[in-house]
Protein backbone atom coordinates (compact mmCIF):
# COMPACT_ATOMS: atom_id res chain seq x y z
CA UNK A 1 0.00 0.00 0.00
CA UNK A 2 2.59 2.52 1.11
CA UNK A 3 4.86 1.39 -1.70
CA UNK A 4 2.17 2.08 -4.28
CA UNK A 5 1.52 5.55 -2.89
CA UNK A 6 5.25 6.25 -2.77
CA UNK A 7 5.72 5.00 -6.34
CA UNK A 8 3.01 7.25 -7.77
CA UNK A 9 4.17 10.20 -5.70
CA UNK A 10 7.77 9.79 -6.84
CA UNK A 11 6.71 9.25 -10.46
CA UNK A 12 4.54 12.38 -10.58
CA UNK A 13 7.21 14.48 -8.86
CA UNK A 14 10.04 13.16 -11.07
CA UNK A 15 8.15 13.79 -14.29
CA UNK A 16 7.12 17.24 -13.09
CA UNK A 17 10.66 18.19 -12.10
CA UNK A 18 12.20 16.94 -15.33
CA UNK A 19 9.52 18.84 -17.27
CA UNK A 20 10.70 21.99 -15.50
CA UNK A 21 14.28 21.08 -16.47
CA UNK A 22 13.36 20.87 -20.12
CA UNK A 23 10.89 23.75 -20.29
CA UNK A 24 12.49 26.32 -18.03
CA UNK A 25 14.34 29.19 -19.65
CA UNK A 26 16.39 29.90 -16.57
CA UNK A 27 19.53 27.79 -16.08
CA UNK A 28 19.32 27.98 -12.30
CA UNK A 29 15.76 26.58 -12.19
CA UNK A 30 16.64 23.89 -14.69
CA UNK A 31 19.67 22.79 -12.66
CA UNK A 32 17.87 22.77 -9.36
CA UNK A 33 14.94 20.77 -10.67
CA UNK A 34 17.36 18.34 -12.34
CA UNK A 35 19.11 17.75 -9.02
CA UNK A 36 15.77 17.30 -7.23
CA UNK A 37 14.61 14.87 -9.93
CA UNK A 38 17.80 12.84 -9.49
CA UNK A 39 17.20 12.64 -5.74
CA UNK A 40 13.66 11.39 -6.34
CA UNK A 41 14.87 8.76 -8.83
CA UNK A 42 16.98 7.26 -6.05
CA UNK A 43 13.66 6.86 -4.22
CA UNK A 44 12.63 4.26 -6.80
CA UNK A 45 15.73 2.23 -6.03
CA UNK A 46 14.94 2.31 -2.33
CA UNK A 47 11.36 1.18 -3.00
CA UNK A 48 12.69 -1.74 -5.04
CA UNK A 49 14.98 -2.72 -2.19
CA UNK A 50 18.17 -1.81 -4.06
CA UNK A 51 19.56 0.44 -1.33
CA UNK A 52 23.13 0.23 -2.67
CA UNK A 53 22.11 1.52 -6.10
CA UNK A 54 19.98 4.19 -4.44
CA UNK A 55 22.97 5.50 -2.53
CA UNK A 56 25.15 5.31 -5.66
CA UNK A 57 22.52 7.30 -7.54
CA UNK A 58 22.60 9.96 -4.84
CA UNK A 59 26.39 10.13 -4.62
CA UNK A 60 27.15 9.99 -8.35
CA UNK A 61 24.35 12.04 -9.87
CA UNK A 62 23.51 14.49 -7.14
CA UNK A 63 26.95 14.64 -5.57
CA UNK A 64 29.34 14.47 -8.49
CA UNK A 65 27.55 15.30 -11.71
CA UNK A 66 25.42 18.12 -10.34
CA UNK A 67 28.48 19.60 -8.62
CA UNK A 68 30.27 19.52 -11.98
CA UNK A 69 27.32 21.26 -13.63
CA UNK A 70 27.24 23.91 -10.93
CA UNK A 71 30.96 24.58 -11.36
CA UNK A 72 30.46 24.91 -15.11
CA UNK A 73 27.52 27.23 -14.49
CA UNK A 74 29.63 29.60 -12.44
CA UNK A 75 31.29 30.73 -15.67
CA UNK A 76 27.99 32.03 -17.00
CA UNK A 77 25.45 34.54 -15.86
CA UNK A 78 22.87 32.16 -14.43
CA UNK A 79 20.20 34.70 -13.64
CA UNK A 80 19.52 35.66 -17.23
CA UNK A 81 16.89 33.84 -19.29
CA UNK A 82 18.13 31.76 -22.20
CA UNK A 83 16.85 32.76 -25.63
CA UNK A 84 16.23 29.52 -27.46
CA UNK A 85 16.52 29.41 -31.21
CA UNK A 86 14.01 26.79 -32.24
CA UNK A 87 13.44 27.50 -35.89
CA UNK A 88 11.24 24.49 -36.47
CA UNK A 89 9.63 23.48 -33.21
CA UNK A 90 7.22 21.06 -34.89
CA UNK A 91 10.09 19.00 -36.28
CA UNK A 92 11.91 19.03 -32.94
CA UNK A 93 8.75 17.88 -31.20
CA UNK A 94 8.14 15.13 -33.75
CA UNK A 95 11.72 13.78 -33.69
CA UNK A 96 12.00 14.00 -29.90
CA UNK A 97 8.64 12.30 -29.46
CA UNK A 98 9.55 9.56 -31.91
CA UNK A 99 12.87 8.76 -30.27
CA UNK A 100 11.23 8.77 -26.83
CA UNK A 101 8.56 6.40 -28.12
CA UNK A 102 11.16 4.07 -29.63
CA UNK A 103 13.16 4.02 -26.39
CA UNK A 104 10.06 3.30 -24.29
CA UNK A 105 9.08 0.48 -26.64
CA UNK A 106 12.58 -1.02 -26.57
CA UNK A 107 12.71 -1.02 -22.81
CA UNK A 108 9.10 -2.13 -22.36
CA UNK A 109 9.40 -5.10 -24.70
CA UNK A 110 11.33 -7.45 -22.42
CA UNK A 111 8.91 -6.78 -19.56
CA UNK A 112 6.26 -8.78 -21.42
CA UNK A 113 8.03 -12.02 -20.66
CA UNK A 114 9.37 -13.19 -17.34
CA UNK A 115 12.20 -15.31 -18.67
CA UNK A 116 14.82 -12.99 -17.19
CA UNK A 117 16.61 -14.69 -14.30
CA UNK A 118 19.03 -13.03 -11.96
CA UNK A 119 22.54 -14.37 -12.54
CA UNK A 120 23.61 -13.51 -9.03
CA UNK A 121 20.46 -13.69 -6.90
CA UNK A 122 20.25 -11.89 -3.57
CA UNK A 123 20.99 -13.89 -0.46
CA UNK A 124 18.30 -13.90 2.17
CA UNK A 125 19.02 -11.74 5.18
CA UNK A 126 22.15 -10.21 3.73
CA UNK A 127 22.50 -6.54 2.94
CA UNK A 128 22.53 -5.22 -0.56
CA UNK A 129 26.01 -3.76 -0.36
CA UNK A 130 27.56 -7.08 0.74
CA UNK A 131 26.06 -8.91 -2.23
CA UNK A 132 27.20 -6.25 -4.68
CA UNK A 133 30.64 -6.30 -3.09
CA UNK A 134 31.01 -10.05 -3.48
CA UNK A 135 30.16 -9.95 -7.18
CA UNK A 136 32.29 -6.87 -7.75
CA UNK A 137 35.39 -8.35 -6.14
CA UNK A 138 35.15 -11.82 -7.63
CA UNK A 139 33.53 -11.95 -11.04
CA UNK A 140 33.98 -8.30 -11.93
CA UNK A 141 37.41 -7.71 -10.42
CA UNK A 142 39.07 -7.26 -13.83
CA UNK A 143 36.61 -4.64 -15.15
CA UNK A 144 36.85 -2.92 -11.76
CA UNK A 145 40.64 -2.69 -12.01
CA UNK A 146 40.51 -1.61 -15.65
CA UNK A 147 38.16 1.16 -14.59
CA UNK A 148 40.91 2.23 -12.19
CA UNK A 149 43.36 2.36 -15.12
CA UNK A 150 40.78 4.38 -17.03
CA UNK A 151 40.59 6.92 -14.21
CA UNK A 152 44.41 7.07 -14.14
CA UNK A 153 44.42 7.77 -17.88
CA UNK A 154 41.77 10.46 -17.46
CA UNK A 155 43.77 12.05 -14.64
CA UNK A 156 47.05 12.08 -16.59
CA UNK A 157 45.21 13.43 -19.62
CA UNK A 158 43.59 16.19 -17.60
CA UNK A 159 46.86 17.20 -15.96
CA UNK A 160 48.95 17.40 -19.11
CA UNK A 161 46.26 19.05 -21.21
CA UNK A 162 45.49 21.69 -18.61
CA UNK A 163 48.82 22.17 -16.89
CA UNK A 164 52.04 21.27 -18.54
CA UNK A 165 53.19 23.91 -21.03
CA UNK A 166 50.30 23.37 -23.39
CA UNK A 167 50.01 27.14 -23.87
CA UNK A 168 53.31 27.23 -25.75
CA UNK A 169 54.33 25.14 -28.70
CA UNK A 170 57.40 22.98 -28.18
CA UNK A 171 57.41 22.06 -31.85
CA UNK A 172 60.67 23.21 -33.41
CA UNK A 173 60.02 26.35 -35.38
CA UNK A 174 61.73 26.27 -38.73
CA UNK A 175 59.55 29.02 -40.14
CA UNK A 176 61.78 31.68 -38.60
CA UNK A 177 64.76 30.46 -40.64
CA UNK A 178 62.57 30.15 -43.69
CA UNK A 179 61.38 33.72 -43.44
CA UNK A 180 64.95 34.94 -43.28
CA UNK A 181 65.71 32.92 -46.41
CA UNK A 182 62.70 34.32 -48.22
CA UNK A 183 63.73 37.87 -47.36
CA UNK A 184 67.23 37.19 -48.61
CA UNK A 185 65.83 35.90 -51.87
CA UNK A 186 63.71 39.00 -52.23
CA UNK A 187 66.78 41.17 -51.99
Amino acid sequence: MYETIAFYLFSALTIGLFLITVMSKNVLYAMTSLAAGMVLISGFFFILGADFLGVVQLIVYVGAIMALYSFAMMFFDATRDIKEKNTNSGLVFLLGGLSALVLVMIFAAPIHSDAVQALYPMHEGVGNAQDVGIVLFTKYLVPFEVAAVMLLVAMIAGIILAGKKMDQSLTEDASADDEILIQKDAK
Binding site: P143, V146, A147, V153, A157
Partner: peptide
Protein backbone atom coordinates in the same frame (compact mmCIF):
# COMPACT_ATOMS: atom_id res chain seq x y z
CA UNK B 1 30.08 -6.27 -22.50
CA UNK B 2 31.20 -4.42 -19.34
CA UNK B 3 34.88 -5.25 -19.81
CA UNK B 4 34.63 -4.36 -23.50
CA UNK B 5 33.13 -1.01 -22.56
CA UNK B 6 35.75 -0.20 -19.93
CA UNK B 7 38.60 -1.24 -22.25
CA UNK B 8 37.14 0.82 -25.09
CA UNK B 9 36.81 3.91 -22.92
CA UNK B 10 40.35 3.56 -21.52
CA UNK B 11 41.74 3.36 -25.03
CA UNK B 12 39.56 6.18 -26.35
CA UNK B 13 40.37 8.60 -23.53
CA UNK B 14 44.08 8.02 -24.10
CA UNK B 15 43.67 8.44 -27.85
CA UNK B 16 41.83 11.77 -27.54
CA UNK B 17 44.69 13.08 -25.45
Amino acid sequence: LILIFVGLETASLALYT
